[in-house]
Design a protein around this nucleic acid. Structure first.
Lengths: 189, 189
DNA sequence: GTAGTAGCCTAGTCCTCCTAGGCAAGAGAC
DNA sequence: GTCTCTTGCCTAGGAGGACTAGGCTACTAC
């Protein structure tokens, strides 16, 4: 009886692809086992439980996204960097909806601390160097930036903008303009 | 054998409360049936399937939130209205995390059109009257506002801000200041 | 008081998650 | 090369959720 050669890495990757196709909520241990041609029970040799699978998808996604953002950010500063970051973020979310959704599950603190999420935070703060913000303004600005990106992308994904004909790309561009403007004059008012 | 007096309305309300307690993903037909003291199969007389339950929670939440926002908005204009809207939104999300999460599932177009979601859109546009924006600026601004609110609230909820000590209330206040500033000078740049 | 229907039931299918225990393939000791 | 031990798969099975088919009963309308 030949061995299937299942590893946690291959499982995670397959799970991530499955998530992009059918949604994270439909990523099931059983479905994954079928893909690998093994029985579902066999996967529990590699995985503690179904939740771990989702956490691993999230960690993979965080790392992938951090890589892309880092690439987009290289050699840029100011608004240029802001736009590059934002577009890398949005493009990733659209190319990998399942992975992106998985990123939203809340990791326990130590897992989060060991994840690529910290790189996101660092890079976001790096962008703000172009806008010369000190604490606590920097934290407020980071939170607003992240909120705007995540909010826009997730509303776009769940069809929240569907009812208005205006192209979302245009609204996105304007939103980034607005973010740049407000960061340039922080604190607001 | 006494009848349990199950109605779709009572089911939906109980499901919404359950969602706030244990999360939407754990709202199960079986659990609901236990609460009502009936067998799970009996609920399929009132419900087409489990998905319909989640849709009904979402519709209930949209309506409740629209009511609260409407109340908060009464007699206010300009930044005052913006802040009132935003706080009503955030407060609802924090008081009813399960209901809020349910709101994010994407409804099919006709269900969405018949939902209280349209009232949200109207009220958001009403706020912008204080900022005197014409189309397509208005749509862009609405989308940015909604993105910011939703993004902030959902990141706050999933613990995205946990790693920094700064109080989220303060960041929230600053974010609203920023939004007001940018809306006052739209289009940005 | 009887017919019809609304509201519940039992029984059963299928799926998923997960555990326990077994067995064989391949790796390392000698 | 043989022996042993671990790794990676297996079968079997339990628990629980979604859902269907079909039956019984209490209330309602006439």
């Amino acid at each position: 009886m030949a061995r299937a050669g299942v590893t946690v890495e291959r499982l995670t990757l397959a799970a991530a692809e499955l998530a992009d196709e059918v949604g994270v909520e439909n990523v099931t241990v059983a479905a994954l086992a079928r893909q690998f041609g093994v029985k579902d029970a066999s996967l529990y040799f590699h995985l503690r439980n179904a939740q771990e699978l989702r956490v691993r998808i999230a960690l993979l996604a965080l790392a992938e996204l951090a890589d892309r953002v880092a690439g987009a950010l290289a050699g840029r500063a100011g608004k240029d960097a802001l736009v590059a970051f934002a577009n890398a973020y949005r493009d990733y979310a659209r190319a990998h909806p399942g992975r992106y959704a998985a990123m939203q599950i809340d990791l326990d603190p130590e897992t989060a601390a060991a994840s690529a999420g910290v790189r996101h935070a660092e890079m976001t703060r790096a962008i703000l160097r172009g806008y010369r913000l000190a604490e606590p303004d920097q934290t407020d600005a980071v939170r607003m930036m992240h909120s705007t990106f995540h909010g826009f992308v997730s509303l776009e994904r769940t069809g929240g903008f569907r009812h208005t004909p205006r192209a979302t790309d245009d609204s996105w561009a304007r939103t980034l303009d607005a973010l740049d403007a407000v960061l340039s004059n922080w604190p607001p008012r």
